[in-house]
Amino acid sequence: MLIFLLKILLIISLLIYAYTDIKSGQIYIIPVILMSIIFFIINIYIGIDINYLSYFIIIFLLLIIYYIAHKQIGMGDILLCNMIGSCLGGLFLMKVFIISLIVAFIFGLYLLIFKKKSISTRIPFAPFLMFATILCVF
């Protein structure tokens, strides 16, 4: 029951972040960090197995990509991934991230084929993360 409530809380918070991301292309830092700390504490209390290895691998890879090509991805996405990982574990984060990348890939192809946007324009990634989380949770 508590895990289900945790998942619902995660989806609601992702909905809010997706909305702010679509609206302004930016995400508030402090609420995301606070939420990830809260999720982490609840996880320790419940005893969910956070697969630390896969969790740190993804965050580390994203940070490397961010520092190599920091104009390509935003720090907000890394913070959101951190929040999802601290909520439901590293393996879940891995699944969510891969699915969201696949969906974003298809969306990017659609944008390019129908010439809606150019290749260097920025698209919000939080909605894809939210969609993938909903897909993985249910």
Partner: peptide, 16 residues
């Protein structure tokens, strides 16, 4: 305080 969140279309193709 806010940070940018979003991938460029180019990154969406390369990163996967």
């Amino acid at each position: 305080k806010k940070v940018n969140a979003g991938f460029t279309v180019e990154a969406v193709f390369i990163i996967p």
